[in-house]
Design a binder for these strands. Sequence first.
DNA 1: TATTGTTATACTCTATAACTATA
DNA 2: TATAGTTATAGAGTATAACAATA
Lengths: 153, 153
Amino acid sequence: MPNSLKTPVASVDKVDTSYLETLIGYNARRAALAVISQFLERMAVYDLKPVDFSVMSVVVHNPGVTSRQLCTALNILPPNLVGLVQSLESRGLLERLPHPSDGRAMGLHPTDQGEQLMKKAEATASELEMTIGSKLTSHQAQTLVSLLQKIYL
Amino acid sequence: MPNSLKTPVASVDKVDTSYLETLIGYNARRAALAVISQFLERMAVYDLKPVDFSVMSVVVHNPGVTSRQLCTALNILPPNLVGLVQSLESRGLLERLPHPSDGRAMGLHPTDQGEQLMKKAEATASELEMTIGSKLTSHQAQTLVSLLQKIYL
DNA sequence: TATTGTTATACTCTATAACTATA
DNA sequence: TATAGTTATAGAGTATAACAATA
């Protein structure tokens, strides 16, 4: 029997992605992109992209942290951090001071302006968590974070 | 009291990322990157990157799917799909046939070679799921997938 | 000899505008 | 007028190699 009679050149009405939806990596990436998309919108007022936010947040909570430490903590390659830090410094959000004991390194310190901005930005980030949380119970959100960390930590 | 005496230019021994680790988006992105990194290694033998795998998987499970449908299902922009499809076609993994009812569209169909490759590739992907799953119980993995889907679906 | 920070650079990924052929 | 597929191109993100200064 010719295939053309059995399936006269198939067409698809509804796309079935059920297989991909069984994969943790696929779901994690889709979820991350969805959240980051909302994050971008909400952080636009502060002119902070996710990486800028992460860098500033670590600097605020770890005054004096070095570039190397930042790279390790956030999984950023050193050459790619240089421009980020220069940009944040030129915006007056952080400053680079000599490291007290290592002459090669520079400690990154938040400025007052940087701390004030991040106070607001972290509040906005927490609001976003609540919005996402409206799709999840608080217990589910906690479970989700815990399970994700098991994978990458 | 001069600040230099209270904190003589701070240095950081262990970086504290506990705030970022409360954010779903941060954790989802870190987890996705960790899984994708392993995915890249395991799929290298098939010369399939995550997007190639996703495209081929949808084509195999939806013979005749159009480019537009693929873009919508996988959140890819049409111009960025063109090269992917051309590459997969030139490798003999799929073929583009005229759509039965829409003269503008082309249906994407897996070749026999494409189906055989994806049979192996999907088995490899499932093995990877098991490996990730070794960090989670099967029930936890199921919960994780379900919670991630609540966020982006 | 190893490490921090940096420059230069290349490669990939993602995004936008505009065109054609068809609906 | 709207949509599918395509081209060209720009921008962002990510990668490696190599160098100067310091440990």
